[in-house]
Design a binder for these strands. Structure first.
Lengths: 175, 175
DNA sequence: ATATAAATACCTATCAGTAGATAGGTTAAT
DNA sequence: ATTAACCTATCTACTGATAGGTATTTATAT
């Protein structure tokens, strides 16, 4: 892993725990074994780092999602699969969704970071609309916003109450 | 309004936009017309201020909610009423729920602040369980966590995309 | 009623720590 | 000779916090 990749990984961990202000160039530099001034070589400003982080996070998430129709063809419910990725982020990483946290702070983010967070949700809503469509839902757009809202909210509350059974209860299909 | 009340109000506005790190004693002091050292007279530490802020926010919210059974007796659907309070916070204030934002940052908050954020959600889940109960829902606890998750999530996404029609679509009863 | 004590609500001045950012130098690979 | 990937050293700005001072009000004791 290059220093640049290591910096992004370290930043992701920090942001997913405490938001955009929860990482500094000094901390990142220490963690990967370089000096803070050298971080500016890879990312001219903090906003540049934050924007690239959110962009790569979005791309990686979409990549691991695949295509709704393809999932369906494999006999998987795309919404269940989407939910399981969120659950992994919460239960395995024990961290928030990067863009969930940044989205809540949206008003105070540098413009170029906010644009990337918007992109995450726009792309997620498009994916979820298609997923609910292949599932035969009546109003796929409404179902899409409801799905991502519920997952982000359940994640946040489970983190707050430090108990992922809240997430499981909220997302359980049966009663 | 006393200086102390003004400090809490100023802090609330800042936190609801950018989280716990988005206010400083100097900024608050400037806004209410005192010096930063004097803020420490009212709140020994930043954590004390944050904790009192979250505590009062919770109490005020619960007070404006009233009792689910009482709302029902007045012919109001308690869940619709709960939803309308969240909508007001988003549309009128154009800000996040204080504890929604703090909850997402939970891992990096001082202990006494985190306790108050937990208290907000614990009390809200109790209220919503009762509300779904009087509505005759099959699984009121599951419905409670789903309701608050959806509202917090929809709020965050509407803030991010700067369009409260996402909130309205997510919370609309009809199709 | 008056003197005294104490609490309230601020103030000035200052501290050590951390923030993001920049200028300019070094080293090694291309 | 150039570029990549670091480095040292330093800057200004801001952070929460503390020590110690002042003026005003309130409470108590004589």
């Amino acid at each position: 892993m290059s220093k640049k990749e290591a910096l992004l990984k370290a930043a992701e961990n920090k942001v997913r725990l405490g938001g955009y202000s929860n990482f500094s160039f000094r901390e990142l530099a220490n963690e990967v074994g370089i000096k803070s001034a050298s971080v500016h070589y890879h990312f001219p400003t903090k906003a540049d780092l934050g924007a690239e982080l959110a962009h790569q996070y979005t791309d990686a998430f979409l990549l691991s999602l695949g295509e709704p129709a393809e999932l369906k063809a494999q006999g998987k419910d795309p919404i269940d699969f989407y939910t399981s990725l969120f659950r992994g982020a919460l239960v395995t990483d024990k961290k928030m969704c990067l863009c969930g946290l940044l989205g809540a702070e949206s008003d105070t983010l540098p413009e170029k970071v906010r644009i990337e967070v918007k992109r995450f949700f726009t792309k997620n809503l498009t994916w979820l609309s298609a997923a609910h469509s292949v599932n035969g839902d009546e109003n796929p757009q409404k179902a899409a916003i409801q799905t991502v809202s519920m997952l982000e909210g359940a994640m946040m509350i489970s983190k707050t109450l430090d108990d992922h059974s809240y997430f499981d209860l909220a997302t359980r299909d049966s009663n």
